[in-house]
Nucleic acid binder design. Structure first.
Length: 491
DNA sequence: GTTGAGCGTT
């Protein structure tokens, strides 16, 4: 058994870490001492330069000459990769908006703790990610025995995001960290996600990830399948996401348009937001562009957030509304690192609020309308617009199916009834009553039977597009898989 | 003293 020297910083005290029999060092071994570490490097004595250590599937491989007696230095994921300096942002009024929009930390539940793990252990482990405001292990009041789970809270949101994006080896067990069910209404990470319109089919998730990574850490890329000419990119830092909104970018030769994926402050209320048309008749043409006048394309600097404060319009008439009510409707997908089947998160993004149906907000301001082609800027689209082109095979029935089935199969009863009542209010196809005509003609996934087929297939489709480099059978990683969840998630 | 999906005595 050989050991290699590892330290957190070049001048820090080092720790001897045991190698495996094949000479590799397990990432988990490293994480046990340096939680959050994502890589290793060492100073090459010949060149004086730093060298990275090869990491494949959770194992570090020694340099050609063997590990030697270098001191290996931990590499941690970057966070300070913002596009604009804080100074620049300081004076802008937009900044204020953004700050308001910045999600706050919530308590996090930590599942799967070893019985022996104490609150001190818990705190100590997570402090590697940032300031820990609170850490508690739930115990039986009588015996004092741990119940195997606990709660903790970070002082800054980026720590939270980072921690949520992966599983954690704590005292020898893999633990999941999630947003507690009781706190799911916070609707956090929404603002970290941008909508990318005018995508072409040859743009891959990797292309987008690579391109947008220059602005900040990308935690997820989601491309709906089948092809729908848009994508979602989620950043670690909401400010990065915000800073890109409204811009046009060129990726692999095609001009894409970035806009807000979701308005702030719209968290699944049952009032107000469902007055827009749902029947898909809002627009014409099938060619995508904003259906009618009144559609700004991009949330300009003031667009998206103004939306939350906009006056309610009972009915926008054809092509109405849309607002910015967008979400991708997959469980945060890879976003949560594409890892955890967090139903809370699912509820959030699938949630009535976030499905982005109709909307009582007038279309965005800032009118850049008239982008042609199959492309449409989502913030300006209503469900009607969604049903426009063949390029957008998402029918309201589909949505109903998703909601209905979610209610039936996965969520509690209130979810279902809420979904249904919304469906009824909207006169949309009732997932429970296929007789009720579906006014849209979009075939959607399940053909005419979207009523029932929807959700699971839909999930399966959407899963894996974010970061499909693992070979898991199911849409979600398995708990007992020891290694190799690529960082990809989310919030 | 055993256990291993879940959701917080205040």
């Amino acid at each position: 058994m050989s050991y290699i020297l590892v330290s957190e910083d070049e001048n820090d005290e080092s720790i001897e870490l045991p190698c495996e029999e094949d000479g590799t060092l397990l990432l988990s071994t490293l994480s046990a001492q340096y939680p959050g570490a994502s890589g290793l490097k060492y100073r090459n004595p010949d060149s004086g330069a730093l060298r990275g250590v090869r990491l494949v599937e959770g194992r570090f491989y020694p340099p050609d000459a063997g590990w030697g007696n270098h001191v290996y230095i931990c590499v941690f994921p970057k966070v300070e990769n913002k596009r604009k300096s804080d100074e620049q942002l300081e004076n802008s009024t937009a900044k204020t908006k953004r700050m308001e929009n910045r999600p706050k930390c919530s308590d996090l539940i930590v599942l799967g703790l070893p019985w022996k793990t104490t609150e001190q252990d818990l705190r100590q482990y997570f402090e590697a990610y940032g300031e820990v405001l609170m850490a508690q292990v739930k115990k039986d009041p009588k015996t004092g025995q741990s119940k195997g789970f606990g709660f903790m809270r970070f002082g800054n949101y980026e720590s939270q995001v980072r921690v949520l994006s992966k599983r954690h080896m704590i005292d020898g067990r893999w633990c999941d960290v999630k947003i507690p069910n009781s706190k799911e209404s916070q609707a956090t990470e929404l603002s970290r996600k941008v909508f990318v319109g005018r995508c072409t089919e040859d743009l891959t998730a990797d292309d987008l990830r690579e391109y947008f990574s220059k602005y900040g850490e990308v935690t997820d890329v989601f491309i709906p399948k089948p092809f729908r000419a848009f994508a979602f990119v989620t950043f670690m830092d909401p400010e990065v996401a915000q800073s890109l909104c409204g811009e046009d970018h060129i990726v692999k030769g095609t001009s894409i348009h970035v806009s807000n994926a979701v308005p702030k402050n719209e968290s699944g209320g049952h009032h107000g937001r469902m007055h827009g048309r749902m029947d898909g008749r809002g627009g014409h043409g099938g060619m995508g562009g904003p259906p009618m006048g009144g559609f700004g394309s991009g949330p300009g600097p003031n667009g998206p957030f103004a939306g939350a404060q906009m006056p309610h319009h009972g009915n926008m008439g054809s092509g109405g509304g849309g607002g910015n009510m967008w979400n991708q409707g997959n469980g945060g997908g890879g976003n949560r690192g594409g890892d955890i089947p967090n139903l809370a998160a699912l509820g959030n993004s699938l949630g009535l609020g976030t499905l982005g149906i109709g909307g009582n907000h007038p279309g965005g301001q800032g009118n850049t309308g008239g982008q042609g082609g199959v492309n449409a800027a989502p913030p300006t689209l209503s469900m009607g617009a969604l049903n426009l082109g063949a390029a957008l095979p998402l029918s309201s029935a589909m949505v109903a199916a998703a909601l209905g089935q979610a209610g039936l199969g996965l969520f509690g009863g209130n979810f279902q009834s809420a979904a249904l009542s919304q469906a009824e209010n909207q006169g949309m196809a009732n997932p429970q009553n296929p007789h009720i005509p579906n006014t849209t003609s979009t075939p959607s996934l399940g053909g005419g039977n979207a009523q029932r087929s929807g959700f699971l297939e839909w999930m399966n489709q959407t899963q894996g597009s974010g970061d499909a480099n693992n070979s898991n059978q199911g849409p979600w990683p398995q708990r007992d898989v020891k290694q190799g969840f690529g960082m990809s998630v989310s919030p």
